[in-house]
Amino acid sequence: MSIFSIPVRTIKGEETTLESYKGQVLLIVNTATKCGFAPQFKGLQKLYDTYKDQGFAVLGFPCGQFANQEPGDDAQIAEACELNFGVNFPLFSKIDVNGSEAHPLFKQLTEEARGVLGSKAIKWNFTKFLVDRNGHVVKRFAPTEEPAKLEQQIQSLLKPLADA
C-alpha cells in the first residue's frame, strides 16, 4: 500500500489520506511538545518555510508513547505547537508509533526504513522519515539528528523536479 492512501486524521479531527502530498518530498516526524527534543520544532518549521514552495512538507504526528511527553489532546497539542514553537506545518491527530496499536503509516515507515541493528521500533520522539516524491522512504533519522542537518538531503530530493 502506498503511504498516500493510508487513512490519517488531521489535528482538527478530519479524516483524510496523504494523497494531497503525492509528488512532494516529505519529512514525517513523531512529535511531542514536552520532550527535550521539542526545540526541534523550530528547525522543522524553518525547513518547511524554506522549501514548502518547492514541493516539500513536514508532517507532524504527535505521540505520547515515550514517557507521556505528549499528554494533551489534539486541541491542546495544536495550541502548544503554535504558541510555543510557531508551528504552522501540517499536524495530525495524536497516534501510537509502536506496538499493536501503532498507526498503519508508522508501521509502513518502520518496515521500509529500519533503525539501528535492523530494529523496526521507534526509540523516542522526533524520529524522522524522509520520503521521496513517489512515497518511498529514503532515510530514517534518529531523534538526536537536528533538522538543519537534513537540509542537503532534502535539497537533493527536490532537485530532480527543478532540473526536469
Rank of each mutant, 00 (worst) to 15 (best):
Gly43Met: 11
Ser2Val: 06
Pro90Phe: 03
Phe126Glu: 07
Phe92Asn: 11
Leu158Asp: 09
Cys63Ala: 13
Leu26Ser: 06
Asp132Ala: 08
Gln40Ile: 12
Asn98Val: 10
Pro62His: 11
Phe85Gly: 02
Asn125Trp: 02
Lys123Thr: 14
Asn134Ser: 14
Ile3Met: 11
Val87Ala: 06
Ala162Trp: 00
Tyr48Asp: 12
Lys120Thr: 10
Cys81Gly: 03
Ala57Val: 05
Pro104Asn: 05
Pro62Trp: 07
Glu111Gln: 15
Lys46Pro: 06
Leu109Lys: 05
Gln69Ser: 01
Gln65Met: 08
Val8Thr: 10
Leu130Thr: 10
Tyr48Gly: 07
Gln24Tyr: 04
Lys123Ala: 13
Lys94Leu: 04
Phe92Ala: 05
Val25Tyr: 05
Pro71Phe: 03
Ala102Gly: 05
Phe89Ser: 06
Ser2His: 06
Glu146Val: 13
Val58Lys: 12
Thr17Gln: 07
Ala32Met: 01
Thr50Ser: 15
Gly86Thr: 06
Gln76Tyr: 01
Leu91Gln: 12
Gly86Ala: 04
Ile154Lys: 09
Pro104His: 05
Phe106Gly: 05
Phe89Glu: 07
Leu18Ala: 11
Ser93Gly: 01
Asn125Asp: 09
Asp132Leu: 08
Asp74Ser: 09
Val137Tyr: 04
Gln24Met: 13
Val87Thr: 12
Lys128Val: 04
Val131Glu: 09
Ala57Glu: 14
Glu146Thr: 12
Arg140Pro: 08
Asp132Arg: 11
Thr144Ile: 13
Gly118Gln: 04
Tyr21Trp: 13
Tyr51Glu: 11
Asp163Arg: 12
Phe41Glu: 00
Thr10Ser: 15
Cys63Ile: 05
Asn88Val: 02
Lys128Glu: 09
Phe41Ile: 03
Met1Ile: 03
Ala162Asn: 10
Leu105Ala: 03
Gln108Met: 13
Phe61Thr: 07
Asp132Ser: 10
Ile122Lys: 09
Lys139Trp: 02
Val137Phe: 03
Pro143Trp: 00
Thr127Pro: 09
Thr33Arg: 01
